[in-house]
């Protein structure tokens, strides 16, 4: 099969290193969030019924 020929803006190539950089940055942010106790606070909130979510206020 012929190699796909990307055409138009919808198929513009992106620098191949960009996703890897985002991946590394994302992992670093996740670790930072855990270190700052964010996941524990998420757990605190998510284990109680969120009154705003269900429309009570």
């Amino acid at each position: 099969m012929a190699t796909p020929t990307p055409t138009g803006p919808a198929t513009a190539a992106h620098p191949s290193r960009l996703p890897w950089a985002f991946l590394a940055a994302g992992l670093a942010l996740m670790l930072g969030g855990i270190w700052l106790g964010e996941t524990a606070r998420i757990l605190d909130k998510a284990t109680q019924v969120c009154l705003q979510c269900i429309g009570i206020g």
Partner: peptide, 19 residues
């Protein structure tokens, strides 16, 4: 400022987006 920013969520969604 540091502990009031959703770093974990930002990071998680960035990983998902990058993949």
């Amino acid at each position: 400022v540091l502990s009031g920013t959703p770093w974990f969520i930002l990071g998680f969604m960035t990983v998902v987006g990058a993949l």
